[in-house]
Design a protein around this nucleic acid. Structure first.
Lengths: 155, 155
DNA sequence: CTTTTTTTGGTCAGAATTGGTCAAAATACT
DNA sequence: AGTATTTTGACCAATTCTGACCAAAAAAAG
């Protein structure tokens, strides 16, 4: 496991322990994990972006900080916001972000997340012309998310 | 025996030793067997496709990997046979039949069946040219079924 | 109160590290 | 000989890691 995943794990733990909000210091983290400070920005932008269901605030200068908050809101509202956020096209990275956010928010189970992932995977869409895949991904994911909201979990 | 079979044998051993899930590095394997890296892709696509009862995940970049998981539970076997039964194309009625059969056999929950249905619904596939839809349906359904066997229900 | 210094975090581009695709060439099979 | 499978290599794509340079906020100095 690379340093990115180790740091992400650490932050995740921090968020859990504090009940949803971690307050970090970039330089301190970088020193603890023996990496350059910008690595922390990389971890945050790839693992804790708003598409993943987090909000990140920060402040520079003395006593600066990076605060990462996990956000949660009523399921139906969240799903419709997610569907709204999907445009006409969706690349694979964006699809992954949405799926893991949905799983993180408890809208779908881990197993269901696997299903959604496999439905929009390159292998599944191989039969379509390249130029159609992003639109297909968008259509498929929207429909699946809508279906997931139609029936309550564990139904 | 060609290099393909040797590599396949090796991977098979690896899967057995680890109890069902091998995690490989493409470049390392290629070096070990003195072949080009793309040979590994060939082995995987011809010997470890979902129709053969495996699921393959991978990641590029630093700390990349190729993970091959064998479906071996009774349910996994059934799923694997279903996947084998799906050809290159699948019309909507056949897809519906397979989904309800899977639900009837308890391989997937009612809610999961909804997800599969919505993934291969005409609305979801609207972005693809008509002539590609049957192949897409087949590909999507195969991949989702394989994923459903990867993780035990209620996991 | 304004200026300067110090202390934080941010951006971005490039290098490094992985795996993927595709089609041509080589080989095996019938 | 003709067809199917295997092997190879050139080119592509995604992810991670690093460092040089930038920007903001607080603290210290004047």
């Amino acid at each position: 496991m690379g340093i990115t995943d180790i740091i992400a794990r650490f932050i995740l733990d921090e968020i859990s322990e504090t009940g949803g909000c971690a307050e970090l210091q970039r330089a301190e983290l970088a020193q603890r994990f023996k990496c350059v400070p910008s690595q922390i920005n990389y971890v945050i932008s790839t693992r804790f972006a708003p598409e993943h269901g987090y909000i990140v605030e920060s402040r520079r200068g003395g006593n600066g900080y990076i605060r990462i908050t996990r956000l949660r809101s009523p399921a139906g509202q969240l799903v419709s916001r997610m569907i709204g956020a999907i445009g006409l096209e969706l690349d694979q990275a964006a699809a992954e972000a949405i799926i893991s956010a949905a799983a993180g928010a408890g809208l779908i189970s881990k197993r269901e997340a696997l299903l959604l992932r496999s439905a929009v995977s390159p292998r599944a869409l191989a039969a379509a012309p390249r130029e159609d895949r992003a639109r297909l991904r968008a259509g498929i994911l929207k429909n699946m998310l809508a279906a997931s909201a139609a029936e309550p979990p564990e139904g």
